[in-house]
Simulated scan of single mutants.
Amino acid sequence: MEAYVLDWVNLLLRWAHVIVAIAWIGSSFYFVFLDNSLTKPADPDLKAKGVDGELWAVHGGGFYHPQKYMVAPKAIPENLHWFYWESYSTWLTGFALFTVLYLYQAGTFLIDRNVHAWSPAAAIAAALGFLVVFWIVYDGICRFFGQREGGDRIVGIGVTVAVVLASWLACQFFAGRAAFLLVGAMMATSMSANVFFWIIPGQRTVIAQMKAGQPVDPVHGQRAKQRSVHNTYFTLPVLIAMLSNHYGFLYGAPHNWLVLVLIMLAGALIRHSFVARHKALVQGQPVPWLYAGVGTAVIVGLIVWLAPAPVPKAAAAAPVSFAQVQAVVAQRCAMCHNEQVISKNIQLHTPELIAKNAQALYQQAVVLKAMPMNNATQITDAERGLLGRWFEAGAPLN
């Protein structure tokens, strides 16, 4: 019953997390597009009001005319919308999901004793430490170098090095699936911390200065803009790190830390291409698709690198008996899928049940390589291939 309840909690938290994450990422993408698509106003009245950029857009049968004031408008509007609950809700639901799935079940999900044998308590403390320490390192890099000449480049290099080092460390200590997700979680934590510690406080300071009749210090807007730009570059790497836990061929690969770094790099390059595209279109320049091309090339390179070795013709042609399949399932799968332990509502302790769940067995153990969890039973690629050939031959019981 506990496993059943946890499955429901997992489902509902994941659903809520995806919903609020869509809202946050959508608003982030929109405002990056907006900032890079604004044009200087030609209307003298808009210039007199302090409008620095405007955009005309059509959507849903109506015309929209967003305007941006450099630093702040002369008076605070009565109806002012704040964009922060999208971020906070995404982090809260994500951390709750991480707690239910990975921290509460650390012995199963965080720890792979073939990678590093330690206690669940130590693994939990280290996982939480990743979230905190990365934020401290990232924030420190931004504080010390962000306002210097050429600071954006230095910050970019420093943050990249920090992400690469964290990816390597995570894959040395945690199960591959957990390591990938943990790297995504630490970056997502920094994204939300940017909103909580810098972006929103900076905006509140600007409003307080306006209400007090004081000159508005532009540094608050500059800092908020810097962190907002970082957030948009983190987005695609975070998404692929989060999605990777469904694809064992990624986190189970040799040198999996490098796989993670490269696929996140591809996401960042593709995202940069779209950011640069917005500016290029406004300025009438060619669209810089080179970055997206390089990112795509990195993904193609990963596809080639991670491709499974071809099965020898003799092995591929050899018929697979059900006795062979049953022996593999009994040794590698049945300890978690039997009459006493019915994990994920799947049982594999009889020939009839193996045949009934052949599709799920093929998908999870052969295609996705997600099972056994963290390869706890040490199933081999040859055994996965054997299960695959049996299923593709029609899953016969003889």
Rank of each mutant, 00 (worst) to 15 (best):
I303Y: 08
I346E: 01
I346H: 01
Q364L: 15
A327I: 01
H278K: 05
P312E: 10
P288E: 08
V298A: 07
W305Y: 12
Q326F: 04
P288T: 07
T296S: 13
S343C: 04
F322A: 02
E339Q: 10
A334M: 11
V298S: 07
V366Q: 08
P351K: 04
A280D: 06
N357Y: 10
Q283D: 13
Q331K: 15
V325Q: 05
Q326A: 15
Y291T: 12
S343V: 06
A292H: 05
K279P: 00
M335W: 08
L348D: 00
Q326H: 08
G301N: 07
V300L: 15
F322T: 05
V328F: 04
E339K: 06
I354S: 07
I303N: 06
Q363S: 10
P286G: 09
V287P: 03
S343K: 13
K356D: 03
Q340S: 09
P312Y: 06
P288G: 06
A323V: 09
A292G: 15
V298R: 06
H349D: 15
Q340Y: 10
Q331D: 15
R277M: 14
Q363P: 00
L306S: 00
R332V: 05
K313R: 11
K344H: 12
I342S: 06
E352F: 02
V287L: 08
A316P: 03
Q324K: 08
A316V: 01
P351Q: 05
P351T: 05
A315Q: 15
R332D: 08
Q324D: 14
E339I: 00
C336P: 01
M335V: 11
Q359V: 10
L361G: 04
N357F: 10
Y291V: 01
I342Q: 13
W289N: 09
V325C: 07
A317K: 13
V287C: 09
A330S: 14
L302R: 06
A317W: 05
L353R: 14
V341H: 07
H278T: 09
V275W: 07
V275F: 09
M335T: 12
H337F: 00
G295M: 09
P286M: 04
G284P: 03
A334C: 01
L281T: 12
S321F: 02
H349M: 01
A314C: 02
A334D: 01
K279W: 08
A292I: 08
A355W: 06
P310I: 00
R332A: 08
Q364G: 05
L361K: 08
A318S: 08
P308M: 02
I342N: 13
A323P: 04
R332K: 15
G284C: 05
I346F: 02
E352T: 10
H278I: 00
Q359R: 14
S321P: 08
T350V: 01
Q331S: 13
N345C: 00
K344R: 13
K313T: 11
Y291R: 12
